[in-house]
């Protein structure tokens, strides 16, 4: 297991996710990719970590590295888990690629006491500039695909996401935006500004009924 992943060099948004996780407890990483975050959390935070990953290559890489990961899909496979099975359910850079993000979010907070969601912010100024002045669908660092090959079928802005949380009765415990240089800023300090300056967003969520 040693040095499989550069545990100290997590991608910026993953580091923010990792910082939101309290040590110990059970965690499900939905869309865990090659398992870098999961591996980090298991070894640095001592969590009982599991993963779900869509790609066969990702799953096989994870299991080959000793991680408990299943091949599956955020849209369908979260339904199986019992209520409150996890302390944290993480969805990094995947929400915008799900068929029914609203249901996925609801499911995450059904099976987990807390959810951590990160996504590329469609309200970022580069996206707005690209669409407004270029007249083309934006292709940026955080959204690197063309319209015809993008897996991102449900992109949203930071404001959109906050609105959805309010509709679903989800409490935002923490929220952080990253600009294109990776600098962090609390979203709630200025939603309008971070929705413009933030290239990516990370939210720590909980159900209203759960007390911290």
């Amino acid at each position: 297991m040693d040095a499989l992943h550069q545990r100290t060099n997590l991608r910026g948004d993953l580091q923010i996710v990792a910082d939101m996780v309290q040590p110990g407890g059970r965690l499900l990483d939905v869309g865990c990719g090659d398992g870098a975050l999961l591996d980090h959390l298991i070894h640095e935070k001592g969590v009982d970590g599991r993963g779900i990953e869509l790609s066969m290559q990702g799953v096989n890489a994870c299991v080959s590295h000793g991680l408990s990961v299943i091949q599956g899909d955020a849209d369908t496979d979260l339904n199986d888990y019992p209520d409150g099975a996890f302390d944290y359910v993480v969805l990094s850079q995947t929400l915008q690629a799900t068929r029914a993000p609203r249901d996925v979010l609801g499911n995450m907070l059904r099976i987990g006491r807390r959810a951590i969601v990160s996504f590329p912010n469609f309200g970022h100024w580069r996206v707005r500039v690209s669409l407004m002045f270029g007249g083309r669908m934006p292709v940026t660092n955080a959204l690197p695909h063309h319209w015809f090959d993008s897996p991102n079928i449900h992109s949203c802005t930071i404001k959109d996401f906050i609105q959805l949380c309010a509709e679903l009765g989800i409490v935002i415990e923490r929220s952080v935006a990253l600009n294109h240089r990776g600098a962090r800023r609390r979203i709630r300090s200025n939603v309008a500004f971070t929705n413009l300056a933030g290239e990516q967003a990370v939210f720590l969520l909980t159900r209203e009924t759960v007390s911290s």
Binding site: D48, V59, V63, L67, V69, I70, G72, D80, Y81, A85
Partner: peptide
């Protein structure tokens, strides 16, 4: 099998091999 193990909150890895 995997769905049942998930529903039981068991620790499971699952790989489909090409």
């Amino acid at each position: 099998i995997v769905h049942a193990l998930n529903a039981a909150a068991a620790n499971v890895s699952f790989a489909e091999i090409e």
